[in-house]
């Protein structure tokens, strides 16, 4: 790929999805592009980029999606999920005892593992049977990932990373060599295609936001603006959970880390202390 084409491509995905492409990853980028090229019938990256320069929307979207990293697993970074189960969730349930309403967002859900992990924790508590209404919203930029999430079908390898065997047999049915999430969990989550650069108006009053392993792909400005938008949509006593290698330091002053809950943040010191207790 010519340097010119590379910088065009880099600008395009940065504008469309906030993603930063570096030339160090050229090899990976080219190999990912090759699947789009095959699908749309391009022989060379030259030809592909030329077409992109003409502003072909479907193609631009496919290229952006293919350049994202969709790796995920159930209960990824288990300590964060344990803290959510042991500290955050009990406090939220206490605080919402009157309204009996919880709204949780998995902001870059990949193939749905994060959202279904949260759904399993909620299912353990049998809240719905006690009259709670639970909104579990899961979004991703990639239409393909949203389709996979809705399908809820996972490979032999995917279900063996992060999922205890008891959870597997409790929440999945075997289909050939794959495993399908049970309908009750499937129905707990509503999946939507959504770009984190867009407006969050429809995501108001969130009690918890999981925004994990996606900020790492963004430039500083995008990271900061995503965090600020999340802060606006989070209830005053809500919690934000980031990925293992992500932090708010230097990006946002809206969040305070919660002690004893890895990767977890609250909006004020008081709430952070309450969640840590």
């Amino acid at each position: 790929m010519t340097p010119d084409d590379f910088s065009f491509l880099a600008q395009m995905v940065r504008r469309r999805a906030g993603l930063v492409l570096t030339e160090k990853k050229l090899h990976l980028i080219e190999s990912r592009l090759s699947t789009v090229m095959r699908r749309f019938g391009f022989r060379s990256t030259d030809a592909l980029v030329k077409e992109l320069r003409h502003g072909r929307e479907t193609l631009a979207r496919a290229v952006t999606e293919v350049l994202t990293t969709n790796e995920s697993s159930f209960f990824r970074d288990r300590a964060a999920f344990e803290a959510f189960r042991e500290r955050v969730l009990p406090r939220l349930i206490e605080a919402r005892a009157e309204t009996k309403r919880l709204r949780i967002w998995s902001a870059a859900c990949a193939a749905g593992q994060e959202a279904y992990s949260i759904a399993m924790l909620l299912d353990d508590l049998k809240l719905q049977a006690q009259g709670w209404s639970i909104d579990l919203i899961a979004t991703d930029l990639s239409a393909e990932m949203i389709a996979r999430s809705e399908e809820g079908l996972y490979s032999h390898f995917e279900v063996q990373r992060g999922l205890a065997i008891r959870r597997l047999v409790a929440h999945f049915s075997q289909e050939g060599g794959s495993w399908r999430i049970h309908e009750n969990l499937r129905r707990m989550v509503s999946f939507h295609q959504f770009n984190l650069l867009d407006s969050y108006g429809w995501l108001d009053d969130l009690d918890a936001v999981f925004c994990r392993n996606v900020l790492i792909y963004f430039d500083q400005k995008t990271k900061a603006s995503v965090l600020d938008k999340i802060a606006e949509m989070l209830t005053p006593d809500g919690a934000l959970v980031l990925g293992n290698s992500e932090a708010v330091t230097g990006l946002s002053t809206a969040f305070v880390p919660v002690d004893r809950a890895p990767n977890t943040y609250a909006k004020t010191k008081t709430i952070a202390q309450r969640l840590a207790s």
Partner: peptide
């Protein structure tokens, strides 16, 4: 799997396995 768990198995790996599965 169910039979193994009720006989007292703690976890269950389905072959083929890899390093990541063992670690997990």
């Amino acid at each position: 799997i169910t039979e193994a768990l009720s006989a007292g198995a703690n976890e269950y790996i389905m072959k083929p396995f890899d390093r990541e599965i063992i670690e997990a």
